[in-house]
Design a protein around this nucleic acid. Structure first.
Length: 583
RNA sequence: GCCCAAAUAGUUUAGUGGUAAAACAAACCCUUGGUAAGGGUUAGACUGUGAGUUCGAUUCUCACUUUGGGCUCCA
């Protein structure tokens, strides 16, 4: 089974859906209906009708009713006037036909027997036999041609597979994905919550969630200091003028919180840290001796994301970014970028993530024709894009190129990760910036005693903590590696009699830097084990008569493996080595 | 922002035009237990917010708030 066949299957099923909906809802117009990853969608202008997921059984039944009549798709090439006539009732088809004709494309219709549609090739041979294993999945609004100035159409998503078992497997996978969803696990494992009263997109981290965040924070700050970063602290609020100078203001106005007027000043919650770091850099003259200057900060930032775009911890309105700006002589930029990529791969390794399967590199390029979105300087863009491309090649990491994904001030290398719903977001980023140094008039004195303009590399080593946490929670289905687990060990006394010994064991572990909980509740050890396992605590230490007598502990893993009786010291040694190895 | 849906106890859910039911969690009591749920008792919800319809609303209608799915993988 190849991709082309699957695409044909899925696209054909979109036709079937279109036909069923048009029969059930006279006057509904079908727009586009392409195959997508794992399925298809079909857009409709529902006219006077309104449908919801509750109507799916009815629509699916209609599809099954129609299907036996669909013997074979037949094709006809037609002219534009013919198309306009045939589809005179469907303005979307007419619009498309007109446009395709203008582009010099051939116009075609297809017909599986009783449903003529404007369509190019790409269908199954024997629809009535092949299209049986489908399911409608969800309903959504989608603007015609993706433009929010156009009419909002109704989009129905569905999936279809060559065989029933494949359909079942896919549906089961969707169920499994729901269980890994960080929003569900965040609640179950008591990591974060949202509050109506606090506001949307503003997560509250619980003690456990904060422990996870703090662990990540200590890890990355220590690592960055080792690698020559200078950690700084700058205010999360600043005058609007700062962002006017940086040039961010016009580009990011829509995603910034509106300015606050205080006395004579206009202040804004910062959507990024760059200008603050530039101000710090400019606070005194810089010599080439101290270059490159690598300012890093665990930086709270605020962005007014569109309400419909907010998703759990993945897209929020305030987040903490492991931000840094490397201000470097131009001729050292490639070297610095390599160092950043090295840091990123170190981080991913510590997280147990693999390139290719868990994340991938994207070279995000600009668009020379779009001087509104991107700073106009073709030569610099060519140069910068090439530097990034060469660094990637030199590091021998696989990557793909994406046009029109750059920052306004330069191209970037993005590390892309997928969440359980298959949606991809940028986790980490490295950006080459040749605009800010000009805007801020950044200078250093080179070894010839002359002023020289540096370039800036913006980078997020461990990304936004909230988003990174979400990816990790989903990747591990909540069972975080030992070194990241908010509670690493839980002590479960079999009965009250062993409390003293339990406290002693706990103290000893805590004094060795292990995060330990104890469950003194007077209930069966089986129940306590179950609860701790569901909380995905890596190690359960069971303490009863035998242990208290022998000075040992009985250890069991969350996977159910019994490590047997072990001396406390040995256990601590083992745990410490796990922390060192990020396992 | 826009389309569709949802909102009931800490959590997961049930239910009804006459102010709500259960399970788990919690508190207390009994049980002092050995590797995924021991037993009992109690408490806990102005049914997201605000209006409207009604003798009466958690239930119907509207608005708002929040959450979830989606918003150019093109005929």
């Amino acid at each position: 089974m190849d991709d082309k066949y699957l695409n044909n299957l899925r696209h054909s099923c979109a036709h079937l859906l279109a036909h069923a909906v048009k029969q059930l809802y006279p006057g509904a117009l079908n727009a586009i209906g392409p195959a997508i990853e794992n399925g298809f969608y079909q857009d409709f202008d529902m006219g006077k009708w309104s449908i919801s997921e509750a109507d799916f059984p009815k629509i699916e039944a209609k599809m099954r009713e129609i299907l036996p009549n669909w013997k074979k798709f037949s094709f006809n090439e037609i002219s534009l006037p013919e198309a306009k006539k045939l589809f005179k009732d469907n303005k979307y088809k007419v619009e498309m036909a007109t446009e395709f004709a203008k582009q010099g494309k051939k116009l075609q219709t297809n017909d599986p027997g009783d449903f003529l549609d404007l369509c190019k090739m790409g269908h199954v041979e024997n629809p009535s036999k092949e299209l049986g294993h489908f399911r409608l999945i969800s309903i959504a609004g989608a603007y015609w041609r993706g433009n929010e100035k156009n009419k909002m159409l109704t989009r129905i998503y569905g999936t279809v597979w060559p065989t029933q078992p494949e359909l079942d497997t896919y549906l089961k996978m969707l169920e499994e994905a729901k269980k890994r969803d960080h929003r569900k696990l965040g609640k179950d494992l008591d990591l974060f919550v949202f509050s109506d009263l606090v506001g949307k997109g503003l997560p509250l981290l619980t003690p456990k969630g904060t422990t996870l965040k703090r662990t990540l924070e200590r890890f990355i700050v220590d690592e960055e200091i080792k690698r020559g970063y200078l950690h700084v602290s700058t205010p999360p609020i600043a005058k609007v003028d700062l962002y006017r100078t940086s040039g961010h203001y016009p580009y990011y106005k829509d995603t910034m919180y509106p300015p606050m007027k205080v006395d004579e000043e206009e202040l804004i919650l910062r959507p990024m840290t760059c200008p603050h770091h530039f101000a710090l850099f400019k606070s005194r003259p810089r010599s080439y001796h101290e270059m490159p200057v690598r300012f890093a900060e665990i930086s709270p930032q605020f962005r007014y994301e569109k309400s419909g775009e907010l998703t759990g911890l993945i897209r929020v309105r305030t987040f903490l970014l492991s931000d840094a700006h490397i201000i470097t002589p131009k001729n050292q930029a490639d070297e610095e970028i390599e160092k950043v990529l090295d840091l990123i791969s170190y981080v991913n390794k510590a997280f147990g993530l693999k390139s290719g399967t868990d994340y991938r590199f994207r070279l995000s390029l600009g668009d020379r024709k779009d001087s509104k979105k991107y700073y106009k300087d073709d030569k610099m863009w060519d140069y910068a894009e090439n530097v990034l491309r060469e660094v990637l090649n030199h590091q021998d990491v696989p990557f793909y190129e994406a046009k029109n994904e750059a920052a306004f001030y330069g191209p970037k290398i993005d590390v892309q990760m997928k969440n359980v719903n298959g949606k991809e977001d940028t986790a980490f980023t490295v950006q080459y910036d040749f605009v800010m140094p000009k805007r801020f008039n950044l200078r250093f004195i080179n070894n010839k005693g002359q002023e020289e303009e540096p370039v800036v590399i913006h980078r997020a080593s461990i990304g936004a903590f909230e988003r990174t946490m979400a990816f990790l929670i989903e990747h591990y289905a909540g069972a975080l590696p030992f070194w990241l687990s908010p509670v690493q060990v839980i002590i479960l006394p079999i009965s009250d009699k062993f409390k003293d010994y339990s406290v002693k064991v706990q103290d000893e572990l805590v004094n060795n830097g292990i995060r330990v909980d104890r469950n003194d509740e007077s209930k069966g050890s089986g129940a306590k084990i179950r609860e701790s396992t569901l909380q995905k605590i890596p190690y359960l230490v069971i303490i009863g008569e035998k242990e208290a007598g022998s000075g040992q502990i009985a250890v069991r893993t969350r996977e159910g493996k019994d490590l047997g009786p072990i001396k406390i010291n040995e256990f601590i040694t083992k745990l410490k080595s796990q922390i060192e190895n990020f396992s």
